[in-house]
Design a binder for these strands. Structure first.
Length: 665
RNA sequence: GCCGACCUGGCGCAAUUGGUAGCGCAUCGCACUUGUAAUGCGAGGGUUAGGGGUUCGAGUCCCCUGGUCGGCUCCA
């Protein structure tokens, strides 16, 4: 007998006991032994600390999904024995597996594969772990060039990234799929494990979702393999719930809502990634901007403007042409003159569309001699920038080629970095809350040690990083480290916000910059008369207005709160004769700045209610004989609820209050 | 940029093996004047993203260009 700790209590078990013996609960699919995941078939040893891993825990789900990926790979090779295996890890909500195949998979292939997977699952194959070594594995897997490469990498101690699922730390192992009825191993894969004990446990809660190409080992220069994505859940019901959730997310897609609610479009004539805002989208955007301006004004920012094009020289100074030329629109060549022989009389000038606003702000800083009394100097601009994003990355309004940043650059003395950062972070969080986002965490991106590309002295990096860190901690929010994620010119904090359905979006960034002040030779005169170099803080709250617009659209699913809604109130008369009564109320509301329309069309009242509900107008004011007689109106809300017979003055007061307080209704 | 799929009136869709473009909503007109999610009737609107090719004949097949979508890579 040996003593182990089993789910927290001391027990004595027979030597050589496996998970099968320790747990009778069918939902336990693996073990955690001394913190390491093991198969149920693992034999525990004396003094081990053992926990059961349930299929519905995060570890359990990963095991389920990874095992499903194996079944997929087996199905692919059953149908096409020529397919070579890439990697097949679990991911959020599912898994994928990469294959090198002659021709890409089609949706019909997926159906056939699901069928074959189902057959494999029902056949109840056992996953059996087998320890091997580099030499034996290389012989066994001689037909699998990608697996061989991974074995090579592992023995070379290289970082294998997502391939850790196949060849993670520890001994090299192969999992055999053993078909009990056929009494033989029918498939095998290089894999770290652990796995479900039996394919049957996958059940019918899985689905193949899409095919895509993916570069081998995530490198653009490598061959593209064909990737199949799938999702897997412990039960069919959970799979269905997931699929429903995906549909809900699709309904909130800002590209779809942008068209449905007539907010913006991307006319093909203009070009990829370049949007026009329609009147309704324009209202939302203007209100967003106006409110942001007001808050910036109150917080000590000064408003500046800069042109959309500039001579190349400026971006040479800033270094952008050196580092990011590929991401910029190609230059406009101007002013070249030639004589009759075609000789250049006057050299052309290159002008670029600006991809960033900071160099302009630096020039504003430099426009006069600065004193410590001028600092912190906070320059704010809604600056429209143009970036030549690769065609494949464009995504509605959240990733476009032309967009407007709510950009500010703060020029601060080194000794006031802390207080300025504290201000900025509080300002950012406050403002985001006003727009209705409330659930945040922070990410701290720091320097990668030993990488020579980072500019600035070590001591300023250390000081700035620790300042950022302590400011972030003071906020009380969760702080996630992002080592090596800093830009070459300075560390940053980014604010991640969760939306209404739990997705996280990177929102604001607060970025320290030791580089541009140097390049632009920015100075100020300190109290002691010496010339000092300011530090620059780049910060954008929305990132870009368009992107934030898109995020809010998805967050609210198009149900913008009254203060942002393009049409805040619509009046619906029961019959034509009550139209005038509603117009009186409308003119009062309009005077108070409310965006109200009376629907005088000759549609049926029911139809109008339907139309304006679909248009997601926050308040419908309905009036008929009864209401008019009582000098009242009836409210109807987007969710179908209603309050009848509300006195006119009360109705007006309520609408104004909701708007002023920026509440959701 | 790469791989794949896709592009039919403003929007959502249909059109058998290639055989001469249809429906709903929206729009416009007329009638109806209504108490909480679609009133009825009528009309107009498409050289099928653009260009080229194959064919007696192309929305359907092939090529090029543009755009969209899903991924990969990227996001100063």
């Amino acid at each position: 007998m040996i003593k182990i700790t089993l789910d927290g209590s001391q027990v004595e078990v027979e030597a050589g006991s496996t998970g099968f013996k320790l747990f009778s609960d069918k939902r336990i699919v693996a073990l955690k032994v001394n913190g390491e995941l093991k198969d149920l078939a693992h034999e525990v040893a004396d003094s081990d600390v053992v926990e059961g891993v349930s299929i519905d825990s995060q570890d359990g789900l990963n095991i389920l999904r990874h095992s499903t990926a194996h079944v997929l790979a087996q199905a692919v090779q059953n149908i096409n024995p020529e397919a070579k295996l890439g990697i097949g890890p679990p991911i959020k909500d599912g898994f994928y597996y990469d294959f090198d195949v002659e021709s890409p998979f089609t949706p019909e292939d997926l159906k056939a594969l699901e069928k074959e997977m189902d057959r494999i699952i029902r056949s109840g194959q056992r996953f059996l772990r087998r320890v091997t070594n580099d030499q034996d594995a290389a012989i066994e897997l001689s037909n699998e060039p990608y697996k061989l490469e991974l074995i090579g990498l592992k023995s070379g101690n290289a970082d294998v990234g997502e391939a850790a699922a196949e060849v993670g730390a520890g001994e090299l192992t192969i999992y055999d799929n053993f078909d009990v009825q056929a009494d033989k191993v029918v498939w095998k894969d290089l894999c770290r494990g652990p796995h479900l004990p039996n394919t049957r446990m996958i059940g019918n809660g899985f689905s193949l979702t899409r095919v895509a190409a993916a570069y081998w080992r995530g490198n653009e220069n490598n061959k593209q393999l064909q990737r199949i994505y799938g999702t897997a859940w412990p039960t069919k019901d959970e799979l269905k719930a997931y699929q429903l959730q995906m549909e809900e997310a699709a309904k909130r897609d800002h590209r779809r809502l942008g068209a449905e609610l007539d907010l913006f479009s991307f006319p093909e004539e203009i070009g990829s990634g370049l949007a026009v805002f329609h009147p309704k989208g324009g209202v939302i955007r203007r209100v967003m901007e106006d409110y942001s301006r007001k808050r910036h004004d109150e917080s000590g920012y000064e408003f500046v403007y800069s042109p959309h094009v500039t001579k190349a020289n400026l971006f040479e100074t800033s270094g952008h042409l050196e580092w990011y030329a590929e991401g910029m629109f190609p230059p406009l060549q101007l002013d070249e003159e030639r004589d009759e022989e075609g000789n250049i009389k006057r050299q052309a000038q290159d002008y670029y569309l600006k991809p960033m606003n900071c160099p302009f702000h630096c020039l504003i800083y430099k426009s006069q001699a600065r004193s410590y009394r001028d600092l912190p100097l906070r320059l704010f601009e809604f600056g429209t920038v143009y970036r030549y994003e690769k065609s494949g990355v464009l995504h509605g309004i959240t990733r476009a080629r032309g967009f407007t940043q709510d950009d500010a650059h703060l020029y601060v003395a080194r000794e006031s970095i802390r207080s300025e950062l504290t201000n900025v972070l509080n300002f950012v969080l406050d403002l985001l809350r006003d727009y209705g986002l409330t659930d945040f965490y922070l990410e701290l991106s720091t320097k990668e040690e030993g990488n020579p590309k980072f500019v600035g002295s070590d001591d300023i990096w250390i000081e700035a990083t620790s300042t950022l860190e302590s400011v972030a901690k003071e906020s009380g929010l969760e702080l996630v480290p992002d080592p090596g994620g800093a830009a070459f010119y300075g560390p940053k904090i980014s604010v991640q916000a969760k939306d209404a359905i739990g997705r996280t979006w990177q929102m604001s960034t607060i970025q320290l910059d030791f580089n541009l002040p140097e390049r632009f030779d920015l100075e100020y005169t300190a109290p002691d008369g010496t010339k000092q170099r300011p530090v620059m803080i780049h910060r954008a709250l929305f990132g870009s207005i368009e992107r934030f617009f898109g995020v809010l659209t998805e967050h609210y699913a198009g149900h913008f709160p009254p203060w942002l809604a393009p049409i805040q109130v619509v009046g619906i008369p029961i019959a034509d004769e009550f139209s005038e009564y509603l117009h009186e109320i409308a003119s009062e509301l309009r005077k108070a700045g409310v965006r109200i329309q009376i629907d005088d069309s000759d549609e049926r009242m029911q139809k109008k209610i339907r139309n304006h509900t679909l248009a997601k107008v926050p308040y419908q004011l309905i009036a008929g004989a009864e209401d008019k007689a009582n000098n009242a109106v009836s409210f109807r809300f987007r969710d179908g609820s209603q309050i009848n017979g509300v006195p006119k003055a009360e109705a007006i007061a309520r609408i104004l209050k909701d708007i002023a307080e920026r509440v959701q209704v």
